[in-house]
Design a protein around this nucleic acid. Structure first.
Lengths: 110, 110
DNA sequence: ATAATACTTTAGCGAATGCTTAAGTATGAG
DNA sequence: CTCATACTTAAGCATTCGCTAAAGTATTAT
């Protein structure tokens, strides 16, 4: 899956900005309009929309127009990709710990 | 903890680049010199060193000079900060699911 | 001492980021 | 229809990013 790696690029990049993380955090509490997401952030609506685009490109947020408001929803299954990457890293790391344990046990001939 | 947020900035940004993720992945298998980290990456040693600086600034990697080689080590405990952030998000998300369940159960008067 | 190795530092460059302002469009209220 | 609301789009701009080339320094080999 060549796409997996480039998806991670987008997800990590999206989460690297504090304003965007704040938006994600807000969305874990439920749907929100663009205006609602923008309200606590000290920047123009235009800037917030650009952040939203990055979150949408990363697949972290989906949006839908309802009347004249744009409703945003968090796509948690996309966050799971990050979990997956961390689990894979941990697998190698923990195998290393296991080997270290084995090595120490072998030398430990009390 | 004001530092926590800015630490996350650095960590997520560091992981947003595929070359840097490759370096982290390599380091989960054990220590490695700068040259060893650079070998599979198609760029100059100078570029790899700049990536290493970003990983070091993010607290993900520590280094030590041994003779004329620079040995690099992964700081897994720094990766745990990301886990923590995800767990916090999940806590809210899962509470939302719980409330949805409760709401559906209430309306389900069979 | 000389040379090779393994980095290190600095300057520079094109592209991407994170904003802003200004001028749109579409929808709902009166 | 008129006006306010809620976004949307486009242009511009300073900064940061990812990279290279070139010229260092420090350590080990011969």
């Amino acid at each position: 899956m060549l796409k997996y790696e480039s998806q991670l690029d987008g997800i990590f990049r999206a989460l690297a900005d504090p304003s965007r993380r704040a938006m994600v955090e807000r969305l874990t509490h439920g749907h929100a309009s663009l205006g609602a997401l923008a309200e606590p952030l000290e920047m123009t609506l235009s800037a917030v929309q650009q952040h939203l685009s990055i979150l949408r490109d990363a697949g972290l947020v989906s949006t839908e127009k309802v009347g004249r408001t744009r409703m945003c929803t968090l796509r948690i299954e996309q966050l799971d990709l990050v979990d997956r990457w961390f689990d894979d890293r941990r697998a190698h790391w923990e195998r290393r710990i296991d080997r270290l344990d084995a090595y120490l046990a072998k030398g430990d001939g009390t």
